[in-house]
Amino acid sequence: MFTGIITAVGQIKSAQAKGDGLHLVVEVPSGYLDDVALGDSIAIQGACMTATELTETTFALDISRESLNKTIGLDKVGPVNLEKALRLNDRLGGHLVSGHVDGVGKVTHFATVVDDAYGSWLLQIEAPKALAPFLAYKGSIVVNGVSLTVNKTQDSNDACIVDINIIPHTLENTTLGKLKQGDTVNLEVDLIARYVARMMETQAK
């Protein structure tokens, strides 16, 4: 489990073919892996992965074709959001996150909020229609591993537009500040919303 609070921004240094998937090597800040052991889980851009090799400043992982088909941003060199797995005595600063990407969304708007004294930005994402039942005003959503609050939803025939306000601190300490219109992002819906929807579905039968 994770919280959606990014603990470091790493860099995929290499992505080499391995079977039908890839073998990735990720570089991290000094000291980041001091409490990580082989086999530990680390979320990369919101996707839970297993550390298979460790050095002082890098870890490696194998990613399957299935995971590559369901996510974005894990198949090439570049910066990535990182979060180590949650411990039972850790603070839950964001919300409960499984690290399983539910769908890929598209950035339709990303710009500063006019007349906002805090310098926040408005991020609009077109989420797959299948995720619409799990997205609600003031509910939680994970974007590339970052726990964020939904400020508005708007349903259409084939998608759900989600409005999110992002503060400067989040932009400076994650990869979200590099987003632009047209980019795709990994999305995970709220875990509790998923179970509530399933309960209602079974009760309706």
Rank of each mutant, 00 (worst) to 15 (best):
D102N: 14
E201W: 00
D190G: 09
G103R: 04
T184F: 06
D158I: 10
E172W: 03
M49S: 08
A15V: 05
T170K: 01
D35L: 11
V196M: 10
A51R: 02
A43L: 08
K178T: 11
I6P: 02
A117L: 07
N157H: 09
V146A: 13
N69W: 01
H95Y: 08
Y195A: 12
F2I: 07
C160H: 01
K129G: 02
K106W: 00
K152M: 05
L131D: 09
Y195W: 09
E83N: 13
R87K: 15
V143K: 02
T55H: 01
M1E: 11
K84N: 04
P168F: 01
Y137W: 08
S147H: 12
A85P: 14
S98D: 07
R194W: 09
Q124T: 02
A204L: 11
Y195V: 11
A204I: 09
Q154R: 14
Q45H: 08
N89D: 15
A15M: 02
M1Y: 11
E56A: 14
V26D: 07
Y32F: 15
D62P: 00
K106S: 10
V142T: 15
L171P: 01
K70M: 06
T149H: 10
H109V: 00
I192N: 11
G105I: 03
A8I: 05
I167K: 03
L171N: 02
G73F: 04
L131V: 04
E27K: 15
D155L: 13
G21Y: 00
L176Y: 03
T71P: 14
L86K: 11
C160I: 05
Q181I: 07
T52M: 14
L148F: 09
T175H: 06
Y137M: 05
A43T: 05
P29V: 05
R91S: 04
S14Y: 05
N144S: 09
I44K: 01
D190V: 06
K106Y: 01
Q124I: 00
V77T: 13
K129Y: 02
V143H: 02
H95M: 02
K152V: 00
E126D: 12
D155R: 14
A43S: 15
Q124C: 08
V25D: 03
T175E: 12
M1N: 10
L122I: 01
H169G: 03
H23Y: 12
G139L: 04
L24N: 14
G103T: 07
D62R: 02
A204Q: 14
D158V: 10
K178M: 11
N144C: 06
G4Q: 07
Q181N: 13
T184K: 10
T149D: 10
T108I: 11
A51H: 04
D183F: 01
I72N: 08
T149Q: 10
T7G: 15
G78S: 13
N157T: 06
I42T: 07
R65W: 05
M1I: 12
V107L: 02
I192F: 12
R194D: 12
L179G: 06
I125L: 11
I72S: 05
V146E: 06
D183Q: 07
D20W: 00
M49V: 09
F59K: 01
V146F: 03
A197I: 04
V101Q: 13
H23S: 14
I5M: 04
C160V: 15
A117E: 15
V97K: 13
V189P: 13
F2E: 08
V143G: 06
A193S: 15
S41D: 13
C48Y: 09
V143C: 09
D102K: 06
T50I: 03
I167R: 03
R198M: 12
G46H: 04
A8G: 04
V146K: 04
